[in-house]
Design a binder for these strands. Structure first.
Lengths: 337, 337
DNA sequence: TTGTATGCGTTATCAG
DNA sequence: CTGATAACGCATACAA
């Protein structure tokens, strides 16, 4: 057909394929003029080395897999931005996966990656500390993994997290200081490590201030907006908390909607603070107090660590937790009278 | 090393590589028991056919490239979600690119894709109708392209858009009806087709209502938040419009920030309406009136069209504009006294 | 139903 | 500095 490849190019230029190859691989062993001639002709005829063939030869995919629970989410989209930034500079491609928080999808994706589709993986996990054999397989194939935000504690890999415990503690303490006596903790999946850590900060802050911990104030929500609305409506009507600490952005939004409908005033009747990366948090009615994670920086850090692992062939890379700091923004939604 | 491949697997099972290959390719010409035996053994030893080698053989990458100006943006992240949904069902991978609205990056990405890295491309463009030779090269290589939202009119390809002209017309008319006499149009790049279409709707609505068009009310903004803040501050102080029609979400946010700082009341002093996919628009202070594009559905549609092109080998596919409908949500930010 | 042989497009090795 | 050749891992045509 009209498809071009290294052989045709070589033939048309009356040189060997090796020389053409050299022209494209910054090889020093090539005459400058020859190289220019080749590149010029290639450009003209729109030739580029086939990436799959190259990969087959030297096992470098120049591709990085990114696995996240959701994409349309301020935190993750900003993190992906950070990853993309670093990857682009290294000339790497990004393969994107979304798990929808379904553990089985995560497993199936990771298993696929065993076929050499990517050189490394950056992921924010969707399951609990459990059977992670599927991840151990990657180690055997020397495919490095870096976790960010949501990690598996039992896997030995580089991890990029934020100081969730401290932030949760501070946020809860802040609510207590503004006068809250009955603070509810909103979480999506209690058993996932990130939910646990955040809850621990909440509990310890309560304990420090001699506020008894009440299990009925821990509200386990779902991934379905409508269900959450119902759950929260019931809680606000029956349990009547005077403070909300939300471990997940969208539960804070749901709280706002319920309050609007029930005529509950934030912050007069109820103070709200939430983990959130929403850039327009200051523009909400009322402005939402947030614990904001450095999403973009976390992406950059995770990608940087992955490239370190790749460049050192997995040796000597800090397989530890790299903790970045979140920022607490106190806004109107949690300010006392 | 410890790496496994089709040969080793075949040898260990005392069968030929072709049989192993058949087991993985839903080939009918294989004994059911043999197939099961192979798959079981493969699973146990964590073998999967190398994707790059397979591709080199049969020129199917099962990969789809997605090129967007930004990722951390409600519209695009939701659209990507839609694309991902369809791609996943087809067993396709997604290669993600971000251009940052820089035309050169778009060109360089597209050129890369000429090397057979992806079977097809879905993109929202970053340039103007100009020299699109780089895209024409793709046609030669039979790599189908589908545009969404931001398209090049002069390229013959499937396009997924929304009824921007109508929406802009309605939005502007709505502002006029609520009493606005001096409506500013905010745009990021006037010369890009999508900005033009939206502006045309704005202009025509003005004309219909005998409001003279004033060029100083067309505010050309940038991609830098700080610069936009300054531009808008100046406009609100000097030109003093009583209505804002923003063709881009983040310019509406910037307007909100400026108004907060200048003590301008929305909607009393200034009414605002904007193109936006922000899911918490109703929660803003005041709730933002929006023209909301069906972002997710656009992603689904674009991906569906691309797969049609792929499956029909590019023939008989509707290389036309598929127009979906946006929805106008009138909220407090643009309601009259 | 299975096995053998070939080639996909590239690059590294080695020889010149 | 350049050319010939083998090999990467797989899937198909063809033979059995």
């Amino acid at each position: 057909m009209d498809s071009i490849n290294i052989k045709k190019l070589a033939k048309e230029l009356n040189i060997s394929t090796s020389t053409v190859s050299r022209a494209f691989n910054d090889n020093t062993d090539i005459n400058k003029d020859t190289k220019e001639r080749i590149l010029a002709y290639a450009k003209q005829h729109n030739y580029l080395p086939n990436h799959y063939a190259s990969n087959l030869r030297d096992k470098k995919t120049k591709t990085l897999a990114v696995i996240v629970p959701e994409i349309a989410n301020d935190f993750f989209s900003q993190a992906i931005n950070g990853i993309e930034e670093v990857a682009r500079k290294k000339g790497f491609y990004i393969l994107l996966y979304r798990t929808d928080d379904v553990f089985e999808k995560e497993v199936s994706f990771v298993n696929y990656l065993n076929n050499g589709k990517a050189d490394g993986i950056i992921m924010s996990v969707s399951g609990e500390a459990n059977d992670h054999n599927y991840l151990r397989q990657l180690e055997k194939k020397h495919i490095p993994v870096v976790f960010f935000d949501r990690v598996y504690e039992d896997i030995d890999a580089a991890k990029v997290t934020t100081n969730d415990y401290d932030s949760s503690f501070s946020a809860t303490e802040h609510l207590i200081k503004t006068g809250c006596k009955k603070i509810a903790y909103l979480v999506v999946n209690k058993s996932i490590s990130i939910g646990k850590v955040r809850m621990q900060g909440y509990q310890d802050a309560l304990a420090k201030h001699k506020t008894p911990f009440d299990d009925s104030l821990v509200i386990d929500c779902s991934n379905d907006e409508k269900v959450n609305y119902k759950i929260l409506k019931k809680v606000l009507q029956d349990v009547k908390p005077d403070g909300i600490f939300s471990s997940v952005e969208r539960l804070a939004f749901a709280t706002y909607y319920v309050c609007n409908d029930l005529g509950i005033s934030i912050p007069d009747d109820l103070k709200v603070i939430s983990f959130s990366s929403l850039r327009v948090a200051p523009l909400l009615a009322p402005a939402l107090s947030t614990i904001t994670q450095p999403a973009y920086e976390m992406g950059v850090k995770a990608a940087t660590l992955l490239f370190e692992a790749l460049e050192n062939n997995g040796n000597g890379v800090a397989k530890k937790e790299h903790v970045l700091k979140s920022k607490l923004y106190i806004r109107k939604s949690s300010i006392g009278e």
